[in-house]
Simulated scan of single mutants.
Amino acid sequence: MLHGRMLQLSGLLALVLSSPFAVNASQASFAKAYSDYQAAVEQGDAPSIEASAKVAYELGATQFAKDSIEVANLALNWASALEKTLTGPLLAPHNQTSTAEINALYQQALTSYKHHYAKSAIELIDPLLGAALTEPNATVAKNHLQQAVDIAEKSQHKKLLADIKMTAFHRLANTELYTPRIKNFALEALESYVQILPENALDRVKATYTVGAIEFAEKHYLKAEPLFLEVIKQFDALEYTHPYALSAHAYLVDIYERKNKREQATAHCLAIGKMRPWTDTQEQQPIFRTLPDYPMSYIKAGKSGWVNLTFTVDEQGFVKDPEIIASEGGSLFEKESLKTLSKWRYAPKFEHGKAIAAKTSVRMDYTINR
Rank of each mutant, 00 (worst) to 15 (best):
L187G: 03
D280C: 10
K119T: 15
Y178W: 05
E42Y: 03
S68A: 08
G212A: 04
P180Y: 06
V23A: 13
Q147V: 04
F185G: 04
T340N: 12
A148W: 06
A61D: 10
P292C: 03
A217F: 03
D150W: 06
Y251K: 05
T111C: 13
E191Y: 12
K343V: 05
K119P: 13
A138C: 06
K320P: 03
P47H: 09
V307A: 01
F288K: 02
K165M: 12
A213F: 11
Q156N: 15
Q316L: 08
L76Q: 07
K223C: 01
L76P: 00
I356Y: 03
I196Y: 07
G329H: 02
K165W: 00
A75G: 06
S192P: 02
H249Y: 13
V319F: 05
H170A: 08
E315P: 02
K320M: 11
G353I: 06
F350Q: 01
N308D: 12
D36G: 09
D321Q: 08
V362S: 03
P136L: 10
L187E: 07
P198T: 11
E101P: 03
Y294C: 02
A132Q: 05
L161V: 12
T139I: 15
K183E: 13
A14K: 15
F333R: 00
L17D: 13
F350S: 00
W78S: 00
I125A: 02
G329Q: 01
V307Q: 01
V319Q: 00
E328Y: 14
D365F: 13
K320Q: 09
V313G: 01
A131Y: 10
Q8R: 15
E257W: 14
L128N: 04
S19D: 14
S98R: 11
E123D: 12
G44I: 01
Q195W: 09
Y193D: 05
A56N: 04
A357T: 05
P198G: 07
Y209D: 02
P198D: 09
K223S: 12
T340G: 01
A357H: 03
L252T: 02
I164F: 04
P322T: 06
L82T: 01
R276W: 08
T97G: 05
I69D: 08
T279W: 05
M166T: 02
F235V: 05
Y106H: 10
E323N: 13
T367N: 15
F30E: 00
L190I: 07
A207G: 05
F169W: 09
W78P: 00
D163K: 10
K84A: 07
Y240P: 07
A301P: 05
Y178D: 12
E239P: 13
W278T: 09
P198F: 03
V41I: 04
Q147G: 07
F318C: 07
L291D: 09
F216D: 05
V55G: 04
V149T: 11
L227P: 05
E153Q: 15
